[in-house]
């Protein structure tokens, strides 16, 4: 009886993970993407409500639901809450800034955490670089056991949490923004 309960719990757990868009691992060890698109995975994830709202307000939902693939480095809601200073980046008045900020967090193709780790190890001290849709370059390095990524002029932020493999790309949660917000008026 207890064995049946455990098996049932495992099945429910597996379904929950799949519903969140996280990757499954097949027999060969390869990551298997979910059926849902990046936009759908984000929509279901309450931890990225602000990011999802910015995508919606800027009109990028269609692009992130379509073919891609893209890898989206997803800052947490509290980091995005500071992105506009006193202003709200999800506001329609800041759509242009929000769109540019989002493009700075998106790179072409599907980058799994294992792909990034392999590239960092191969690149050595200089780090592994990836081009963003804002025409800037992100640099990945290691900080101890952690993988970190740094945008142009931005701080090093950690790749945190679980990656989510969507049908058309990957969501890589990061601990902060890849561009550093200005700290004072006029410093932008």
């Amino acid at each position: 009886m207890s064995r049946m309960l455990i098996r049932g719990a495992l099945i429910v757990g597996a379904i929950a993970v799949a519903a969140c868009g996280r990757s499954d691992i097949d027999d060969s060890g390869s990551a298997q993407p979910a059926e849902a698109s990046l936009a759908s995975v984000l929509e279901r994830n309450p931890g990225h409500a602000r990011l999802e709202a910015m995508i919606e307000s800027t009109g990028l939902t269609e692009a992130l639901a379509a073919t891609g693939p893209y890898t989206l480095f997803a800052p947490p809601d509290d980091a995005l809450a500071t992105a506009g200073g006193d202003a709200d980046m999800t506001d329609d008045a800041l759509k242009a800034q929000a769109a540019q900020l989002l493009r700075a967090h998106i790179v072409p193709g599907a980058l799994t955490r294992a792909d990034i780790a392999a590239a960092v190890d191969r690149a050595g001290g200089e780090g592994a670089k990836m081009r963003t849709m804002a025409d800037a370059v992100l640099t990945f390095t290691r900080d101890g056991e952690r993988l970190v990524v740094r945008g142009p002029d931005g701080p090093a932020v950690a790749l945190s949490g679980d990656e989510a493999l969507a049908r058309n790309g990957v969501i890589q949660p990061v601990s902060g923004l890849l561009l550093a917000p200005s700290t004072a008026p006029g410093a932008g």
Binding site: A83, G84, G85, D86, A87, M89, L94, A96, Q97, Q100, L101, R103, A104, T132, A134, D135, A136, G151, P152, D153, L179, A180, P181, S182, T183, A184, P185, G186, A187, G188
Partner: peptide, 21 residues
Amino acid sequence: YERPRYDYVWRSYRDEWDYRY
């Protein structure tokens, strides 16, 4: 002279010009 704090996003262009929205 009072550039909005959120205009930092254009720095990603990283060229020799200055951008304002």
